[in-house]
Design a protein around this nucleic acid. Sequence first.
DNA 1: AATGAATGAGCGTTCATTCAT
DNA 2: TATGAATGAACGCTCATTCAT
Lengths: 215, 215, 215, 215
Amino acid sequence: MPKETFHNLQEAKKQKIIEAAISEFETYHYDQASVNRIVENSGISKGSFYQYFDDKKDIYLYILNIIVTKKMTYITPALQNPFDHPFFEVVRDMNRCGLQFAKEHPRFMRIGNRFLQDKTHPIFLEVMAGNEKIATDVYEQLLKRAIEKGDIRKDIDVPFTAHMLFSLSSQMVTFNANMTQDAWLDNMMASLDKLLDLMANGLKPQDKEDHNDTC
Amino acid sequence: MPKETFHNLQEAKKQKIIEAAISEFETYHYDQASVNRIVENSGISKGSFYQYFDDKKDIYLYILNIIVTKKMTYITPALQNPFDHPFFEVVRDMNRCGLQFAKEHPRFMRIGNRFLQDKTHPIFLEVMAGNEKIATDVYEQLLKRAIEKGDIRKDIDVPFTAHMLFSLSSQMVTFNANMTQDAWLDNMMASLDKLLDLMANGLKPQDKEDHNDTC
Amino acid sequence: MPKETFHNLQEAKKQKIIEAAISEFETYHYDQASVNRIVENSGISKGSFYQYFDDKKDIYLYILNIIVTKKMTYITPALQNPFDHPFFEVVRDMNRCGLQFAKEHPRFMRIGNRFLQDKTHPIFLEVMAGNEKIATDVYEQLLKRAIEKGDIRKDIDVPFTAHMLFSLSSQMVTFNANMTQDAWLDNMMASLDKLLDLMANGLKPQDKEDHNDTC
Amino acid sequence: MPKETFHNLQEAKKQKIIEAAISEFETYHYDQASVNRIVENSGISKGSFYQYFDDKKDIYLYILNIIVTKKMTYITPALQNPFDHPFFEVVRDMNRCGLQFAKEHPRFMRIGNRFLQDKTHPIFLEVMAGNEKIATDVYEQLLKRAIEKGDIRKDIDVPFTAHMLFSLSSQMVTFNANMTQDAWLDNMMASLDKLLDLMANGLKPQDKEDHNDTC
DNA sequence: AATGAATGAGCGTTCATTCAT
DNA sequence: TATGAATGAACGCTCATTCAT
């Protein structure tokens, strides 16, 4: 996390640095990202950079933190009393919020996705060392309660399914990756509904309904 | 793609270069991979390298091509008369073959996974620009026929579902990444079955069977 | 030497700065030592540092001075009426006191030794430019009087011998540098006795005693 | 040690690099020595430097090696059949040769002395890891044989004395460090004789001779 | 065809010191 | 008096690529 010196900076300067860093990490992988470029685009000296941050990792984690914090403000409303609502409703709301976040902060989404994608990178492993469960835990909890309530099949592998549900939300955005389209959000929302339908009912013809029909 | 000079090389020399490149890309990201090291481990000169390949990208794509070609030899048998067999059987066979390939060529798998992971990397975008459809096309064809045969619900969005099926099989590998070498294949096969069950039947309780029970 | 501003400081603050500087110079060579770290560990500001000291050299010399002053308090008692005691007794007492000082102030010893080691370093040359005589003067005086009293051979080169005696006592420390903390002082005291025996009687067999024996 | 690429260089270029490195290490400590400066003064590019040498340490050890090799050519003649000659004669010859070397290669001496002085430096420890004994071993062997032959007192501590004798040769040069003087070599030779006399006979009056006088 | 020496920009990081407040 | 932000040169080292031979 940034040193005090950074927090003491004037807001404008701070924002310019953050802006430069976001722009850098949006464009480049952590390893390819260049402190030099951040410094240039910030209009600060290299020496100053290292008075604000310990090292490249420091500013990277700082940006990641901003992203996570921001994303949380979008998602947490969907997680109010999650067990009072049907499973798929909660999941859909959560992902809709995530998509809204992606739409409004496409650069954050790009950085976040890049981070989540390279699961073998030292920095990913370090961050996730203690926290990996956290991400999928929400899904695990929801699944367990949903099973108890009879909303979900009893015979599924909860951790595995949680992992897959979690993966889906980030995979989905790769389907219509061109965020510049106006209709992106609408498309994604539609895709989300399709996906949830898929997850809920499967690909096989719905005997249930077929059955009802024949009745 | 390699220049003619490369293809004119003696097989042994060619293999040594390929081996060195595989070893490099297996260990490092494309950006971190070093032509210097490849050259060193190949026992060829720097100058020669640039007479065989245009640049780093050239040899990388060449290796990727080898991997894809190899993987094809595993998968195509599962695609013999694909329309004569039930949809999920074909998909399972295909993915089982893919897993078998991964088991027998772990280095290829590592390179392939790394490539698939950073979907924002210029080189990924370039490769996928013309080729992504190819990968999902198989799924699309299979889905269409399965729908016709009544194996799959009529109301799904075919391209979207194809994309998701494709994504999921690659995501699966990220679950249980801390595999013990021995159990890996078994674990993955089991995961595959879980995944296909999920895709086939969905998460909701199977009314069909419940219904049958009560009858 | 520190500016007046430093001397005007509250004792506690002064000590904290001194402590930080000692810790730094104990751990690092003069060139590797970092004003940044001293400032950090002092809890003072960079600006303040340069209001107390001219530069890095200034604080280094100040610390050296503290060390020398402290060492003097150990050694001077051994130099009370030095001419009333046998030469080697005085030399031994002096060096024993020096060893005692080293034992009780290992950090000072480390700084001092490091300083004495690089005799080509600009800062060493600068310090020694005017002060080297001082260090060897004691030995010179002692030697001269010892010669007069007949304790020491008349035909030696006094300045040269003084220089060697001085050098040897600092070299001694480099023997058995892998001291176990506990036994260090005992070992060094033993080494000192060996060294003085060497200096007193030389390496050649003692004809004197042989002679006496045969008489 | 340098890579083959360095050895393949034209002699003139090689010499220019060696010259630049010697000049650098003569002037600066290993840590302060700058690859940049070496490169500048060599007239080669930074990239080239790292094609010739692994790193700064590599070229440093290479220079050290040159120095040791050169010094050996001076000293080994004095070590022909060392046990056939009186102990102090061998030691004197050896040190005279060392002084001659120092006179003719003052820059080498400076580098060598600097290296020997900082006995806590990682690079010193690394080099000396297996080789420290070597330096003092010569003295130990000589001492042992001299004791057997009765040239040296039986009651000395051999390793300790060997260490001190070894130290002396490097300490001696610090007495008259100003090498620019014409008379330096003569002065040093004289100092050497004084030192050996000291080591041989000690500082105490020679009773043997006194005895003889009174007889 | 094959070589491998040469390049120079670039990397992340540290530094002692200055100076406006 | 005290501050601490700002600086920019310097560090060791790696890189993909070029080009004369």
